[in-house]
Design a protein around this nucleic acid. Structure first.
Lengths: 110, 110
DNA sequence: ATATATACCTAAGATTGTTAGGTATTACAA
DNA sequence: TTGTAATACCTAACAATCTTAGGTATATAT
């Protein structure tokens, strides 16, 4: 909770990174994973997640496989090759951005 | 350059923190300061900055003093007491958020 | 039975930032 | 002296992103 506002812009990177680590995940699993990883401090809403997954798929970064488990559908997403490259790219961008932010708020010298 | 998208949501915190450090600043100065601090990697657009300054002022976090320098106007902004408290709050939120992000992307255990 | 968890989805609205203008003064170079 | 860049403010249309608030359906526990 607190400042969910800061989270704007980071969702794609979060999703891609989790997929890179886990290999494949489905949407609901991602929401639960993030909740667990952050001890509840960050909640990914489904209204944000599902459109993001669809967009990443449309861009060719993700592939989908639909599986029926307990008579319910799961859509497992995996990274394409392009998705892996883009993940590495977005991750390094995020790391650079975090450093930038820290430099600004701590006023570290250039 | 790179991912300006990540920067969404952080502008208020950046502005407030710079003001806390510097005491008072005017808009144009803030854009230049951020450019310098980040060696050009983060550019605050005026279309984002000025509305943000006006909003923070409307919320009672900033005070304005108009000064004429070289026959040009400068609007110096300073933190109100409420602004100082809010700055501390937003800063700690940002630190927590950065930790959260790092935990997710590095998959650090909870 | 009923509520909660699982699992997907979308649409309206809000927030926030970009793009692309506008005004005006000062400083510097051609 | 004329034009361009820098300084210094501003706004409006658009775009991207997320929240809120629904919807559908099955499984599980009370």
């Amino acid at each position: 909770m607190g400042n969910q506002r800061l989270y704007k812009g980071t969702l794609q990177t979060i999703v891609l990174t989790l997929l890179e680590e886990k290999g494949k995940m489905y949407g609901y699993e991602i929401t639960q994973k993030v909740k667990a990883l952050t001890k509840g401090s960050l909640t990914i809403t489904e209204g944000a997640l599902y459109p993001t997954l669809h967009k990443l798929e449309a861009e060719g970064l993700l592939e989908v496989e639909v599986v029926r488990v307990d008579n319910r559908l799961r859509k497992y997403y995996t990274l394409t090759d392009q998705g892996s490259r883009e993940t590495a790219h977005k991750l390094s961008e995020m790391e650079a951005f975090i450093e930038t932010l820290q430099r600004i708020v701590n006023l570290k010298p250039a």
